[in-house]
Computed example of a mutant assay.
Amino acid sequence: MAFTRLTMSGQFRSSAFVFALIFYGVIISAGAQTPTTSPAPTPCALRSNTSCAECLQNVTCLWCAPTKQCVDYPVRNILPPSSVCPLNDARWGLCWVNFQILIITMSVLGGIIIITILVCCFCCCKCERFGNKKEDAKVERQTRARKSRQKAKRTEMQLRHDEIRQKYGMAKDNPYARMDDH
């Protein structure tokens, strides 16, 4: 009894120790993952009359090339309105990427992807339907072959029966005559 109590308390201690280690590890890893506060990025308006590269270091900024203004990207609109900057002159993300060309390219790529998906779906449906026609034709050929074999067996059986009737003198001239008439 005393030995049992000792082992149970030893098991309890080891379980508590493992739990404490896991808890300590979680706290340490959570503490290591807490983000350090970085200095707030400078507002886009303060980067005006500098360079495109300096303006676009902040992803929320939009560079207007002719006016050399760095403005906050108008997030309420998908595309920046021409009152902020014409699309052809707007730069966002990379200085060498024309915003208008970026939009056109993305639209074309999206259209190509959609058309490709539709063509693939159409081809899959077409192939499936064509495959079913092949299978239907195969089943039809098998059915016809089976019926012709059955007909040949029936004819062969009928000939054997007629031979047996002939052999035992039970052949009938009129197939509709009664057997008793002979």
Rank of each mutant, 00 (worst) to 15 (best):
K68F: 04
S51K: 03
A171K: 08
C127H: 09
Q150M: 13
T7Y: 02
V18S: 01
C95V: 02
F17L: 07
R5C: 06
T67Q: 04
F19Q: 00
R146I: 08
G25K: 00
V108D: 04
I103Y: 12
Q69V: 03
K138W: 15
V59W: 09
K151P: 05
L21H: 00
V59T: 12
P80A: 14
S107A: 15
E140M: 06
I117N: 04
R76Q: 12
S9T: 10
A177N: 01
F23H: 00
A145C: 02
I27C: 02
D89K: 03
T34I: 15
M157I: 09
R160N: 07
I164S: 02
N77P: 00
Q69K: 05
R91E: 04
A145K: 05
R5K: 11
L21V: 00
M179G: 04
R91M: 05
I113Q: 04
A2D: 13
F19W: 02
T67A: 08
K133Q: 14
C124P: 00
N132T: 08
Y168M: 07
F12E: 11
C121R: 15
I113A: 12
T60K: 11
R144T: 09
K151S: 13
N77D: 11
R160L: 11
Y176Q: 10
V18K: 01
F122T: 07
M170Y: 13
I113P: 00
V97S: 05
T60Y: 14
P80V: 11
Q33K: 07
Q100I: 04
S51R: 04
K153W: 15
L21W: 00
L79Y: 09
I104C: 06
L159M: 12
H182D: 11
E135W: 14
I101E: 12
C120D: 08
A171S: 12
P41C: 03
T36M: 10
V18Y: 01
D162I: 09
I115W: 05
R178W: 10
Y176P: 00
T4S: 13
F130C: 10
P80C: 07
V18D: 00
W63C: 04
R47I: 06
